[in-house]
Nucleic acid binder design. Structure first.
Lengths: 218, 218
DNA sequence: GACAAATATGAATCGGTGTTCATTAAAATT
DNA sequence: AATTTTAATGAACACCGATTCATATTTGTC
Protein backbone atom coordinates (compact mmCIF):
# COMPACT_ATOMS: atom_id res chain seq x y z
CA UNK A 1 0.00 0.00 0.00
CA UNK A 2 1.09 3.53 -0.68
CA UNK A 3 2.34 6.10 1.72
CA UNK A 4 -0.26 8.34 3.31
CA UNK A 5 0.39 11.67 4.99
CA UNK A 6 -0.49 11.41 8.66
CA UNK A 7 -2.17 14.18 10.55
CA UNK A 8 0.82 14.57 12.78
CA UNK A 9 3.08 14.97 9.78
CA UNK A 10 0.76 17.44 8.17
CA UNK A 11 0.81 19.39 11.39
CA UNK A 12 4.58 19.36 11.54
CA UNK A 13 4.78 20.53 7.95
CA UNK A 14 2.41 23.38 8.61
CA UNK A 15 4.43 24.20 11.64
CA UNK A 16 7.67 24.35 9.71
CA UNK A 17 6.05 26.55 7.14
CA UNK A 18 5.00 28.92 9.87
CA UNK A 19 8.47 28.87 11.35
CA UNK A 20 9.93 29.83 8.01
CA UNK A 21 7.48 32.65 7.48
CA UNK A 22 7.99 33.92 10.98
CA UNK A 23 11.74 33.79 10.64
CA UNK A 24 11.55 35.73 7.41
CA UNK A 25 9.19 38.26 8.90
CA UNK A 26 11.43 38.83 11.86
CA UNK A 27 14.41 39.40 9.63
CA UNK A 28 12.41 41.86 7.59
CA UNK A 29 11.14 43.54 10.72
CA UNK A 30 14.56 44.54 11.75
CA UNK A 31 16.65 44.63 8.67
CA UNK A 32 14.17 45.16 5.89
CA UNK A 33 13.72 42.82 2.96
CA UNK A 34 17.38 43.26 2.18
CA UNK A 35 18.13 41.19 5.27
CA UNK A 36 15.91 38.33 4.20
CA UNK A 37 18.54 36.19 2.49
CA UNK A 38 17.70 32.55 2.11
CA UNK A 39 20.67 31.44 4.16
CA UNK A 40 19.65 33.73 7.00
CA UNK A 41 16.03 32.73 6.85
CA UNK A 42 17.01 29.08 6.98
CA UNK A 43 19.34 29.64 9.89
CA UNK A 44 16.75 31.58 11.84
CA UNK A 45 14.04 29.05 11.10
CA UNK A 46 16.31 26.20 12.06
CA UNK A 47 16.14 24.35 8.76
CA UNK A 48 18.46 23.76 5.84
CA UNK A 49 18.38 26.10 2.90
CA UNK A 50 17.15 23.34 0.66
CA UNK A 51 14.18 22.89 2.94
CA UNK A 52 12.99 26.39 2.18
CA UNK A 53 12.44 25.23 -1.37
CA UNK A 54 10.17 22.44 -0.25
CA UNK A 55 7.84 25.08 1.10
CA UNK A 56 8.30 27.95 -1.31
CA UNK A 57 9.19 27.82 -4.97
CA UNK A 58 11.54 30.77 -4.77
CA UNK A 59 12.79 33.55 -2.60
CA UNK A 60 10.48 35.91 -4.40
CA UNK A 61 7.42 33.90 -3.45
CA UNK A 62 8.54 33.62 0.14
CA UNK A 63 9.05 37.36 0.38
CA UNK A 64 5.80 38.10 -1.32
CA UNK A 65 4.04 35.91 1.16
CA UNK A 66 5.65 37.78 4.02
CA UNK A 67 4.71 41.07 2.46
CA UNK A 68 1.13 39.99 2.03
CA UNK A 69 0.77 38.75 5.56
CA UNK A 70 2.18 41.86 7.10
CA UNK A 71 0.30 44.24 4.87
CA UNK A 72 -2.94 42.32 5.22
CA UNK A 73 -2.82 42.87 8.94
CA UNK A 74 -2.54 46.62 8.41
CA UNK A 75 -5.26 46.75 5.86
CA UNK A 76 -7.66 44.78 8.00
CA UNK A 77 -7.25 47.31 10.74
CA UNK A 78 -8.07 50.10 8.35
CA UNK A 79 -10.96 48.30 6.73
CA UNK A 80 -12.51 47.63 10.09
CA UNK A 81 -12.45 51.30 10.89
CA UNK A 82 -13.59 52.28 7.43
CA UNK A 83 -16.63 50.05 7.66
CA UNK A 84 -17.38 50.95 11.25
CA UNK A 85 -19.58 53.49 12.92
CA UNK A 86 -19.57 57.20 12.36
CA UNK A 87 -19.83 59.80 9.67
CA UNK A 88 -17.57 59.58 6.66
CA UNK A 89 -15.52 62.45 8.02
CA UNK A 90 -15.04 60.75 11.34
CA UNK A 91 -14.06 57.49 9.75
CA UNK A 92 -11.67 59.16 7.35
CA UNK A 93 -10.06 60.97 10.20
CA UNK A 94 -9.75 57.79 12.19
CA UNK A 95 -8.36 55.80 9.29
CA UNK A 96 -5.74 58.41 8.52
CA UNK A 97 -4.65 58.74 12.09
CA UNK A 98 -4.47 55.01 12.51
CA UNK A 99 -2.50 54.56 9.33
CA UNK A 100 0.03 57.16 10.30
CA UNK A 101 0.44 56.31 13.92
CA UNK A 102 0.72 52.59 13.30
CA UNK A 103 3.39 53.26 10.73
CA UNK A 104 5.31 55.25 13.28
CA UNK A 105 5.02 52.54 15.88
CA UNK A 106 6.06 49.74 13.61
CA UNK A 107 8.66 51.93 12.04
CA UNK A 108 11.01 49.37 10.55
CA UNK A 109 8.29 47.19 9.18
CA UNK A 110 6.41 50.19 7.86
CA UNK A 111 9.56 51.39 6.17
CA UNK A 112 10.01 48.00 4.57
CA UNK A 113 6.44 47.99 3.31
CA UNK A 114 6.31 51.57 2.15
CA UNK A 115 9.70 52.86 1.21
CA UNK A 116 12.59 50.44 1.27
CA UNK A 117 14.19 49.83 -2.10
CA UNK A 118 12.96 46.43 -3.23
CA UNK A 119 13.07 44.35 -6.36
CA UNK A 120 10.42 44.05 -9.01
CA UNK A 121 8.37 41.33 -7.38
CA UNK A 122 8.01 43.14 -4.13
CA UNK A 123 7.45 46.44 -5.86
CA UNK A 124 4.43 44.78 -7.41
CA UNK A 125 3.14 43.74 -4.01
CA UNK A 126 3.77 47.23 -2.76
CA UNK A 127 1.78 48.69 -5.61
CA UNK A 128 -1.09 46.41 -4.72
CA UNK A 129 -0.80 47.52 -1.11
CA UNK A 130 -0.98 51.18 -2.12
CA UNK A 131 -3.89 50.53 -4.40
CA UNK A 132 -5.81 48.91 -1.62
CA UNK A 133 -5.15 51.86 0.61
CA UNK A 134 -6.47 54.02 -2.14
CA UNK A 135 -9.60 51.94 -2.37
CA UNK A 136 -10.23 52.21 1.33
CA UNK A 137 -9.91 55.95 1.22
CA UNK A 138 -11.92 56.18 -1.97
CA UNK A 139 -14.83 54.29 -0.48
CA UNK A 140 -15.06 56.62 2.46
CA UNK A 141 -14.73 59.63 0.21
CA UNK A 142 -17.56 58.41 -1.97
CA UNK A 143 -19.81 57.97 1.00
CA UNK A 144 -18.86 61.38 2.28
CA UNK A 145 -19.61 62.99 -1.03
CA UNK A 146 -22.93 61.24 -1.25
CA UNK A 147 -23.83 62.35 2.24
CA UNK A 148 -22.74 65.88 1.49
CA UNK A 149 -19.90 65.91 3.98
CA UNK A 150 -17.29 66.44 1.30
CA UNK A 151 -17.48 68.39 -1.93
CA UNK A 152 -17.63 66.39 -5.11
CA UNK A 153 -14.25 65.14 -6.35
CA UNK A 154 -12.64 62.40 -8.34
CA UNK A 155 -12.30 59.98 -5.47
CA UNK A 156 -9.66 57.77 -7.11
CA UNK A 157 -7.25 60.59 -7.65
CA UNK A 158 -7.93 62.19 -4.31
CA UNK A 159 -7.44 58.87 -2.57
CA UNK A 160 -4.16 58.35 -4.40
CA UNK A 161 -3.00 61.75 -3.20
CA UNK A 162 -3.69 60.75 0.37
CA UNK A 163 -2.04 57.38 -0.10
CA UNK A 164 1.07 59.15 -1.31
CA UNK A 165 1.13 62.05 1.07
CA UNK A 166 1.14 60.08 4.29
CA UNK A 167 4.08 57.76 3.68
CA UNK A 168 6.20 60.46 2.13
CA UNK A 169 5.60 62.82 4.98
CA UNK A 170 6.53 60.06 7.37
CA UNK A 171 9.56 58.76 5.55
CA UNK A 172 12.20 61.15 6.75
CA UNK A 173 11.08 60.43 10.29
CA UNK A 174 10.41 56.80 9.40
CA UNK A 175 13.95 56.06 8.31
CA UNK A 176 15.30 53.21 10.42
CA UNK A 177 17.75 55.34 12.40
CA UNK A 178 15.68 58.43 13.16
CA UNK A 179 14.31 58.64 16.65
CA UNK A 180 13.03 62.07 15.97
CA UNK A 181 9.52 60.77 16.07
CA UNK A 182 9.53 59.47 19.57
CA UNK A 183 8.62 62.89 20.85
CA UNK A 184 7.11 64.79 17.97
CA UNK A 185 5.05 61.98 16.53
CA UNK A 186 1.72 63.42 17.59
CA UNK A 187 2.49 66.70 15.99
CA UNK A 188 3.60 65.10 12.75
CA UNK A 189 0.47 63.00 12.57
CA UNK A 190 -1.76 65.95 13.28
CA UNK A 191 -0.08 68.02 10.65
CA UNK A 192 -0.41 65.32 8.04
CA UNK A 193 -4.06 64.82 8.86
CA UNK A 194 -4.73 68.49 8.65
CA UNK A 195 -3.30 68.53 5.16
CA UNK A 196 -5.24 65.51 3.98
CA UNK A 197 -8.53 66.49 5.50
CA UNK A 198 -8.27 69.97 4.12
CA UNK A 199 -7.25 68.44 0.81
CA UNK A 200 -10.47 66.48 0.46
CA UNK A 201 -12.32 69.68 1.17
CA UNK A 202 -13.60 68.85 4.61
CA UNK A 203 -15.03 72.14 5.72
CA UNK A 204 -14.53 72.04 9.45
CA UNK A 205 -11.27 70.21 9.83
CA UNK A 206 -11.27 70.46 13.59
CA UNK A 207 -9.00 67.55 14.32
CA UNK A 208 -9.71 65.75 17.50
CA UNK A 209 -6.30 66.15 19.02
CA UNK A 210 -6.92 63.86 21.92
CA UNK A 211 -8.26 60.79 20.20
CA UNK A 212 -6.93 57.75 21.96
CA UNK A 213 -4.27 55.97 19.94
CA UNK A 214 -5.33 52.74 18.32
CA UNK A 215 -4.67 49.90 20.69
CA UNK A 216 -4.04 47.06 18.28
CA UNK A 217 -0.47 45.87 18.51
CA UNK A 218 1.84 46.17 15.54
CA UNK B 1 60.10 65.12 -22.56
CA UNK B 2 56.92 64.18 -20.77
CA UNK B 3 53.57 63.68 -22.31
CA UNK B 4 51.18 66.62 -22.18
CA UNK B 5 47.45 66.46 -22.70
CA UNK B 6 46.54 68.44 -25.79
CA UNK B 7 43.46 70.58 -26.03
CA UNK B 8 42.13 68.45 -28.79
CA UNK B 9 42.54 65.34 -26.67
CA UNK B 10 40.93 67.01 -23.69
CA UNK B 11 38.06 67.92 -25.95
CA UNK B 12 37.75 64.39 -27.23
CA UNK B 13 37.77 63.03 -23.70
CA UNK B 14 35.06 65.43 -22.65
CA UNK B 15 33.17 64.44 -25.72
CA UNK B 16 33.38 60.75 -24.94
CA UNK B 17 32.24 61.42 -21.43
CA UNK B 18 29.22 63.23 -22.80
CA UNK B 19 28.52 60.42 -25.21
CA UNK B 20 28.55 57.95 -22.36
CA UNK B 21 26.24 60.03 -20.22
CA UNK B 22 23.90 60.63 -23.11
CA UNK B 23 23.84 56.97 -24.00
CA UNK B 24 23.02 56.07 -20.44
CA UNK B 25 20.35 58.71 -20.22
CA UNK B 26 18.72 57.51 -23.39
CA UNK B 27 18.65 53.96 -22.14
CA UNK B 28 17.10 55.13 -18.89
CA UNK B 29 14.66 57.28 -20.77
CA UNK B 30 13.12 54.34 -22.44
CA UNK B 31 13.84 51.36 -20.28
CA UNK B 32 14.40 52.83 -16.87
CA UNK B 33 17.55 52.36 -14.84
CA UNK B 34 17.09 48.64 -15.15
CA UNK B 35 18.03 48.98 -18.81
CA UNK B 36 21.24 50.83 -18.08
CA UNK B 37 23.59 47.87 -18.08
CA UNK B 38 27.21 48.63 -18.63
CA UNK B 39 27.38 46.50 -21.75
CA UNK B 40 24.42 48.31 -23.23
CA UNK B 41 25.69 51.73 -22.30
CA UNK B 42 29.04 50.93 -23.89
CA UNK B 43 27.40 49.63 -27.03
CA UNK B 44 25.17 52.66 -27.35
CA UNK B 45 28.00 55.06 -26.64
CA UNK B 46 30.22 53.29 -29.15
CA UNK B 47 33.01 52.43 -26.73
CA UNK B 48 34.29 49.33 -25.02
CA UNK B 49 33.00 48.40 -21.60
CA UNK B 50 36.41 48.92 -20.12
CA UNK B 51 36.36 52.47 -21.38
CA UNK B 52 33.39 53.27 -19.20
CA UNK B 53 35.63 52.68 -16.22
CA UNK B 54 38.10 55.26 -17.43
CA UNK B 55 35.36 57.82 -17.07
CA UNK B 56 33.37 56.58 -14.11
CA UNK B 57 34.56 54.58 -11.15
CA UNK B 58 31.52 52.33 -11.10
CA UNK B 59 28.14 51.76 -12.53
CA UNK B 60 26.63 53.31 -9.47
CA UNK B 61 28.47 56.56 -10.01
CA UNK B 62 27.53 56.66 -13.66
CA UNK B 63 23.88 56.13 -12.84
CA UNK B 64 23.95 58.67 -10.07
CA UNK B 65 25.40 61.20 -12.46
CA UNK B 66 22.62 60.52 -14.92
CA UNK B 67 20.06 60.82 -12.18
CA UNK B 68 21.50 64.11 -11.04
CA UNK B 69 21.60 65.61 -14.49
CA UNK B 70 18.06 64.67 -15.30
CA UNK B 71 16.65 65.68 -11.97
CA UNK B 72 18.61 68.92 -11.88
CA UNK B 73 16.93 69.95 -15.08
CA UNK B 74 13.52 69.42 -13.53
CA UNK B 75 14.37 71.18 -10.35
CA UNK B 76 15.76 74.19 -12.16
CA UNK B 77 12.50 74.60 -13.95
CA UNK B 78 10.64 74.55 -10.67
CA UNK B 79 13.07 76.83 -8.89
CA UNK B 80 12.79 79.37 -11.65
CA UNK B 81 9.06 79.47 -11.23
CA UNK B 82 9.28 79.44 -7.46
CA UNK B 83 11.55 82.46 -7.44
CA UNK B 84 9.65 84.25 -10.14
CA UNK B 85 6.89 86.81 -10.16
CA UNK B 86 3.55 86.52 -8.52
CA UNK B 87 1.93 85.85 -5.20
CA UNK B 88 2.89 82.77 -3.25
CA UNK B 89 -0.39 81.18 -4.19
CA UNK B 90 0.15 81.81 -7.84
CA UNK B 91 3.66 80.45 -7.76
CA UNK B 92 2.64 77.40 -5.80
CA UNK B 93 -0.07 76.73 -8.30
CA UNK B 94 2.31 77.13 -11.18
CA UNK B 95 4.99 74.95 -9.61
CA UNK B 96 2.54 72.16 -8.93
CA UNK B 97 1.06 72.24 -12.35
CA UNK B 98 4.45 72.31 -13.97
CA UNK B 99 5.71 69.45 -11.87
CA UNK B 100 2.76 67.28 -12.69
CA UNK B 101 2.42 68.06 -16.35
CA UNK B 102 6.12 67.71 -17.04
CA UNK B 103 6.08 64.34 -15.34
CA UNK B 104 3.26 63.27 -17.61
CA UNK B 105 5.04 64.46 -20.72
CA UNK B 106 8.33 62.83 -19.87
CA UNK B 107 6.53 59.80 -18.59
CA UNK B 108 9.24 57.17 -18.74
CA UNK B 109 11.94 59.37 -17.38
CA UNK B 110 9.63 60.65 -14.66
CA UNK B 111 8.77 57.11 -13.74
CA UNK B 112 12.45 56.27 -13.50
CA UNK B 113 13.11 59.25 -11.27
CA UNK B 114 10.08 58.91 -9.06
CA UNK B 115 8.89 55.37 -8.87
CA UNK B 116 10.95 52.70 -10.58
CA UNK B 117 12.45 50.13 -8.24
CA UNK B 118 16.10 51.04 -7.93
CA UNK B 119 19.04 50.00 -5.82
CA UNK B 120 20.34 51.68 -2.71
CA UNK B 121 22.57 54.21 -4.40
CA UNK B 122 19.86 55.54 -6.64
CA UNK B 123 17.35 55.43 -3.86
CA UNK B 124 19.61 57.85 -2.07
CA UNK B 125 19.64 60.17 -5.04
CA UNK B 126 15.90 59.89 -5.25
CA UNK B 127 15.54 60.82 -1.63
CA UNK B 128 17.65 63.90 -2.27
CA UNK B 129 15.46 64.73 -5.24
CA UNK B 130 12.31 64.48 -3.13
CA UNK B 131 13.85 66.52 -0.37
CA UNK B 132 14.67 69.27 -2.80
CA UNK B 133 11.13 69.28 -4.08
CA UNK B 134 10.04 69.61 -0.51
CA UNK B 135 12.32 72.56 -0.01
CA UNK B 136 10.99 74.31 -3.05
CA UNK B 137 7.43 73.87 -1.87
CA UNK B 138 8.35 74.77 1.68
CA UNK B 139 9.91 78.05 0.65
CA UNK B 140 6.81 79.13 -1.19
CA UNK B 141 4.62 78.02 1.68
CA UNK B 142 6.65 80.05 4.13
CA UNK B 143 6.32 83.13 2.00
CA UNK B 144 2.63 82.54 1.63
CA UNK B 145 2.17 82.15 5.35
CA UNK B 146 4.14 85.30 6.03
CA UNK B 147 2.08 87.21 3.51
CA UNK B 148 -1.11 85.86 4.96
CA UNK B 149 -2.12 83.95 1.86
CA UNK B 150 -1.99 80.60 3.63
CA UNK B 151 -2.85 79.72 7.19
CA UNK B 152 0.04 78.91 9.46
CA UNK B 153 1.37 75.35 9.15
CA UNK B 154 4.47 73.27 9.57
CA UNK B 155 5.86 73.92 6.14
CA UNK B 156 8.27 70.96 6.10
CA UNK B 157 5.56 68.43 6.73
CA UNK B 158 3.07 70.09 4.46
CA UNK B 159 5.65 70.27 1.70
CA UNK B 160 6.47 66.58 2.16
CA UNK B 161 2.78 65.77 1.80
CA UNK B 162 2.68 67.57 -1.50
CA UNK B 163 5.90 65.95 -2.66
CA UNK B 164 4.35 62.58 -1.96
CA UNK B 165 0.86 63.20 -3.20
CA UNK B 166 1.74 64.26 -6.71
CA UNK B 167 3.91 61.33 -7.80
CA UNK B 168 1.65 58.75 -6.21
CA UNK B 169 -1.41 60.17 -7.85
CA UNK B 170 0.41 60.11 -11.16
CA UNK B 171 1.96 56.69 -10.85
CA UNK B 172 -0.85 54.49 -12.04
CA UNK B 173 -1.17 56.71 -15.06
CA UNK B 174 2.60 57.17 -15.20
CA UNK B 175 3.36 53.49 -15.56
CA UNK B 176 5.33 52.93 -18.76
CA UNK B 177 2.52 51.19 -20.62
CA UNK B 178 -0.47 53.28 -19.68
CA UNK B 179 -1.66 55.68 -22.33
CA UNK B 180 -4.61 56.58 -20.25
CA UNK B 181 -3.14 60.00 -19.68
CA UNK B 182 -3.00 61.13 -23.24
CA UNK B 183 -6.57 62.29 -23.01
CA UNK B 184 -7.35 62.76 -19.37
CA UNK B 185 -4.10 64.35 -18.33
CA UNK B 186 -5.55 67.81 -17.79
CA UNK B 187 -8.23 66.46 -15.57
CA UNK B 188 -5.80 64.45 -13.50
CA UNK B 189 -3.51 67.40 -13.02
CA UNK B 190 -6.38 69.68 -12.06
CA UNK B 191 -7.65 67.20 -9.56
CA UNK B 192 -4.25 66.76 -7.96
CA UNK B 193 -3.76 70.49 -7.73
CA UNK B 194 -7.12 70.96 -6.18
CA UNK B 195 -6.20 68.51 -3.48
CA UNK B 196 -2.82 70.04 -2.78
CA UNK B 197 -3.96 73.64 -2.83
CA UNK B 198 -6.87 72.86 -0.56
CA UNK B 199 -4.47 70.89 1.61
CA UNK B 200 -2.28 73.87 2.30
CA UNK B 201 -5.39 75.77 3.23
CA UNK B 202 -5.55 78.11 0.29
CA UNK B 203 -8.86 79.77 0.82
CA UNK B 204 -9.97 80.50 -2.70
CA UNK B 205 -8.62 77.59 -4.67
CA UNK B 206 -9.97 78.77 -7.98
CA UNK B 207 -7.60 76.93 -10.24
CA UNK B 208 -6.77 78.60 -13.48
CA UNK B 209 -7.87 75.82 -15.72
CA UNK B 210 -6.49 77.33 -18.88
CA UNK B 211 -2.93 78.10 -17.87
CA UNK B 212 -0.62 77.46 -20.81
CA UNK B 213 1.43 74.34 -20.37
CA UNK B 214 5.12 74.86 -19.71
CA UNK B 215 7.00 74.87 -22.94
CA UNK B 216 10.37 73.55 -21.87
CA UNK B 217 11.07 70.16 -23.43
CA UNK B 218 11.54 67.13 -21.24
C1' DG C 1 60.81 57.67 -37.15
C1' DA C 2 61.58 56.19 -32.53
C1' DC C 3 60.34 56.14 -27.99
C1' DA C 4 57.22 57.05 -24.09
C1' DA C 5 52.99 58.07 -22.06
C1' DA C 6 48.21 57.90 -22.17
C1' DT C 7 44.08 55.89 -23.75
C1' DA C 8 41.05 52.27 -25.45
C1' DT C 9 39.84 47.47 -25.85
C1' DG C 10 36.85 43.33 -24.72
C1' DA C 11 37.41 38.68 -23.34
C1' DA C 12 38.05 36.67 -19.05
C1' DT C 13 37.25 36.99 -14.24
C1' DC C 14 34.94 37.69 -10.02
C1' DG C 15 31.50 37.95 -6.38
C1' DG C 16 27.49 37.25 -4.13
C1' DT C 17 23.07 34.72 -3.79
C1' DG C 18 19.57 32.07 -5.19
C1' DT C 19 18.85 27.42 -6.42
C1' DT C 20 19.69 22.49 -7.20
C1' DC C 21 20.30 17.63 -6.29
C1' DA C 22 22.63 13.41 -4.79
C1' DT C 23 22.46 11.71 -0.35
C1' DT C 24 20.62 10.83 4.31
C1' DA C 25 16.97 10.53 7.59
C1' DA C 26 12.28 9.84 8.88
C1' DA C 27 7.72 8.09 8.41
C1' DA C 28 4.24 4.88 6.69
C1' DT C 29 2.84 0.47 4.95
C1' DT C 30 3.07 -4.75 4.60
C1' DA D 1 12.01 -5.97 9.96
C1' DA D 2 11.86 -4.98 5.38
C1' DT D 3 10.36 -1.91 1.95
C1' DT D 4 8.75 2.14 -0.05
C1' DT D 5 7.63 6.86 -0.13
C1' DT D 6 8.24 11.33 1.53
C1' DA D 7 10.97 14.89 3.82
C1' DA D 8 15.31 17.20 5.01
C1' DT D 9 20.01 18.27 4.22
C1' DG D 10 23.83 21.49 2.82
C1' DA D 11 27.68 21.59 -0.08
C1' DA D 12 28.19 22.39 -4.77
C1' DC D 13 26.47 24.81 -8.63
C1' DA D 14 24.61 28.34 -11.74
C1' DC D 15 23.74 32.67 -12.95
C1' DC D 16 24.52 37.15 -14.44
C1' DG D 17 26.15 41.48 -14.78
C1' DA D 18 29.86 44.50 -12.87
C1' DT D 19 34.66 44.88 -13.03
C1' DT D 20 39.47 43.99 -14.28
C1' DC D 21 43.73 43.83 -16.82
C1' DA D 22 47.05 42.24 -20.28
C1' DT D 23 47.25 43.90 -24.79
C1' DA D 24 46.71 47.04 -28.67
C1' DT D 25 46.18 51.60 -30.31
C1' DT D 26 46.65 56.39 -30.34
C1' DT D 27 48.87 60.57 -29.10
C1' DG D 28 52.74 63.50 -27.76
C1' DT D 29 57.73 64.59 -27.50
C1' DC D 30 62.43 64.60 -29.31
Amino acid sequence: MAYRRTDSVAARLADTRRHILNAARELVADGGFAAAQMTEVAKKAGVATGTLYRYFPSKEELCRQVFREVSAREMNVLVTIAQGEGSAAERLESVLRTFASRAIRGRRLAFALLAEPVDLGLAEERARFRRTHGEIFATILEEGITSGEFPSRDVRITAACIAGAIPTALIGPLAPESHELDEKSDKVVDEIMQFCLAGVGLLQPRIKMKTAEPRIRA
